[in-house]
């Protein structure tokens, strides 16, 4: 993707990168491509990368879905940050501000649905999927909006960071 090289360079220099995309479903593939590109640099096998890409896409989908009726939806903010043994992806709904209740589901309340067919029809499989795909999920609400934080543990950088 255009700009992914710059994103990688930025991550390796600063430890993180952030992109803001319109809260529209058509932009989710762009987010997936960026997450895939960044994750490939870490010691993650292909299956873990695909898991992470799906989890981030689902989390972005919550924001996009909740913004469908908003008159002036603000962007979805996706922030990638990393340490030596973990990557953290934060998806923020910047529309819900000033103490609004988080528009993202609370991971603490999720159980696997007893009837997955009904749950699929009612759109209730997204959060169980995310919880199964990454190592840790938390949510928060702050002045910049409500956020979902997803963490995956992983090995060291594949590339050489600038010194």
């Amino acid at each position: 993707m255009a700009g992914s090289g710059a994103a990688i360079e930025h991550v390796e220099r600063t430890g993180g990168v952030q992109i803001d995309v319109p809260a529209e479903a058509g932009y989710l593939s762009l987010v997936r491509m960026l997450v895939h590109t960044l994750a490939q640099r870490r010691d993650l096998d292909d299956e873990r990368i695909e898991d992470l890409v799906l989890a981030v896409s689902e989390a972005c989908g919550w924001v996009v879905g909740s913004r469908r009726t908003a008159d002036t939806p603000r962007p979805v903010q996706v922030r990638w940050s990393e340490s030596e043994n973990a990557c953290v992806i934060e998806v923020t709904d910047t529309t819900s501000q000033d103490g609004d209740a988080p528009s993202v589901p609370s991971p603490d309340e999720v159980v696997l649905p007893p009837d997955p067919g009904r749950a699929a029809l009612e759109g209730e499989l997204s959060l169980p999927l995310v919880l199964a795909l990454v190592d840790e999920v938390t949510s928060s609400a702050g002045p910049n909006g409500s956020s979902v934080h997803m963490t995956v543990t992983c090995g060291a950088w594949q590339g050489q960071p600038d010194l």
């Binding site: 997936r32 890409v53 799906l54 896409s57 689902e58 989908g61 067919g117 699929a120 029809l121 009612e122 759109g123 499989l125 997204s126 999927l129």
Partner: peptide, 16 residues
């Protein structure tokens, strides 16, 4: 190449 929970819902809807 990629299937998310929305796609699952569509397939279950088709089955139903």
């Amino acid at each position: 190449d990629f299937l998310d929970s929305t796609g699952l819902g569509v397939l279950v809807g088709g089955l139903k």
